[in-house]
């Protein structure tokens, strides 16, 4: 089977082929790749696929891994109900 049809982001069903195509077209950062393809923007916050998005971006740009986190994290790092955000319960 064509390895390009592998789903990389399970939440948004973005395939390896789509990621590689976007990475080769734009030669962009992992963050831009995420915004362009929606990979890593689903329910889990990219916890399963973020390292793969970063790998694909780096393979296209030829950049080595850096000490900084490639795809930044923003709160909430877990999906929470709207009612819970901002509300002090305790």
């Amino acid at each position: 089977m064509d390895q390009g049809n592998i789903v990389i982001c399970r939440c948004e069903e973005v395939t390896l082929k789509e990621l590689i195509a976007a990475a080769e077209t734009y030669r962009c950062s992992a963050r831009e790749l995420k915004l362009r393809t929606r990979a890593g923007m689903g329910c889990c916050g990219g916890r399963t696929c973020r390292r793969f998005i970063d790998m694909v971006a780096r393979q296209a740009t030829g950049e080595a891994p850096s000490h900084g986190i490639p795809l930044g994290y923003q709160p909430p790092v877990r999906p929470v109900a709207f009612g819970q955000l901002g509300g002090v319960i305790g």
């Binding site: 399970r10 939440c11 069903e13 689903g42 329910c43 889990c44 916890r47 399963t48 999906p79």
Partner: peptide, 20 residues
């Protein structure tokens, strides 16, 4: 089933990380 594609999904990580 996946919200858009309809592909069936089950447990993947079993400890709360993957939300599958």
């Amino acid at each position: 089933l996946h919200e858009e594609k309809g592909t069936p999904r089950g447990i993947y990580c079993n400890i709360g990380h993957c939300f599958e």
